[in-house]
Amino acid sequence: MDARTPARHAEAVIEVRDLVVGFGDRVILNGLNLDVYRGEILGFVGTSGGGKSVLTRTILGLVRKRSGSVKVFGQELGTLNEKERSLMERRWGVLFQQGALFSSLTVKQNIQFPLREYLHMSQAMMDDVAFAKIAMVGLKSDVAEKMPSELSGGMIKRAALARSLALDPEILFLDEPTSGLDPIGAGDFDELIRTLQQTLGLTVFMVTHDLDSLHTVCDRIAALADGKVIAEGTIATMMAAKHPWLQAYFHGSRARAVFGAQG
């Protein structure tokens, strides 16, 4: 575990400071602080409806913040002009919970979509890239010509992951990547994320509920409750935390099954 934990002096690629986000008179995130370091896999847990997705969407600029700062690669998103923003958006990839593949395009066209928009290269090169990404996420090449509606749930996740990796991003956002997969599929997917992270040198921000994922792939875990990050660190830190929600989460019957003797 220690070998994987990034050194304290590692560069923070995402820095969130005193973030406040709310809708109407409801405040979802209230003074949230979080750092994500280069090259780590950060697992993000929290109560359901507690604002995990809201934080992800705020970092991505899909939700407006009320105050505080969100810096990605050291740049405040709100201060960028359109061109800088587009350059920034090419440096991250997002895997949405339902995949969000474009339903009217084949898998190959889905992967090539960002390439076609941003880079100028031949069709042969784009085909090479698409087939390489499809192979990297563990799909067979015949999936390339299929429509998203012809794929199973697990294949959709993998195809969507291939699309999010299309531009070789530095940060990968995963929203509940293993939800809806069977335990074997989920285990394979965890392993895939670990392999890709090492091969491509990714930084991964993963919102998850899957205790197995937290245990096997995450270098560090951050827990969200009451609109703040209440604990950060390894599994051991989480187990030792006193917050009642963390106690319930990491010492429940499901957690005991995963962590065994440690629990």
């Binding site: 087939f131 990297m136 067979k140 390339a144 010509e145 091969t199 491509l200």
Partner: peptide, 21 residues
């Protein structure tokens, strides 16, 4: 640090591409 990536890529693209729709 790129050895792993190059090796991974050399494994891909071995299968013939499927027929176009």
């Amino acid at each position: 640090k790129y050895a792993e990536l190059v090796e991974e890529i050399s494994r891909t693209g071995q299968e013939p591409p499927p027929p176009k729709r």
